[in-house]
Design a protein around this nucleic acid. Structure first.
Lengths: 123, 123
DNA sequence: CAGGATCCTATCCGATACTG
DNA sequence: CAGTATCGGATAGGATCCTG
């Protein structure tokens, strides 16, 4: 760190210093805001879902990306994974407390975008 | 659309149907949650900034990506751009009302991640 | 100073095939 | 059913050079 001042202009409280450091929050935030992570988290807000239910909820996601996103989210402790060793196997995913905590502002974000977005006549 | 039911399981209110359609909200949300868009928006919450100030705020971003992200955000009406035709030219960026509106939950999100993240002793 | 143009690399991501 | 493995095309992204 060569300079400690940054955003000290008009920012009320310099609560975080996530802009220059490689603090882990940046990685997690990147996962949370990743292309599919967003939708997985939002989908799971409606309740726990199994792999295929998730895949059907988030139309457009491939199995590969879903599995990959889920792995990342589980690693970050945003999502838990429960394997029922039956035949056929049954794997359920759900939000951890952290995941629910993060899902709030995420849904809020989506809400504001969707509500603000469809302005009549902007092709 | 071959089937209209989706997430009708446990979701309280089916407010949006952003999961299967290619509604524009998905595109905007993707921009908002894009790798750098997040940080641009958060950085601008502290006040209007010029190109190089932004670049310095968001350490790690390249000029190309900053310009590209800014263009996308301006297109989505999240950020405005004001050109002062002086020499040297001076271009200032700031949040639109939409941008500020979206910046709220975004900062909230970042806050929760950063606050929750650094658990003492998890190398 | 603010960025466009170009080149090249890293990664994302879908399709397919295969496993427990 | 719930994945993993691999391949190949598409895209994101960095470095550099150049312009108004």
């Amino acid at each position: 760190m060569t300079e400690g001042q940054q955003l000290t202009r008009t920012v009320p409280q310099p609560r975080y210093e996530v802009f220059h450091t490689d603090c882990p929050a940046r990685g997690v935030l990147d996962h949370v805001t990743s292309k599919w992570g967003v939708w997985v988290l939002i989908a799971l807000r409606g309740g726990d879902l199994r792999f295929h239910e998730l895949r059907e909820s988030i139309r457009g996601i491939s199995e590969k990306m879903l599995a990959q996103s889920l792995r990342a989210l589980v690693r970050d402790d945003l999502v838990w994974r429960q394997v029922e060793p039956t035949t056929p196997p049954q794997v359920t995913y759900g939000l951890t407390e952290f995941g629910r905590d993060v899902g709030g502002p995420l849904t809020d974000l989506l809400d504001r975008v969707t509500r603000r977005l469809p302005p009549p006549g902007t092709p």
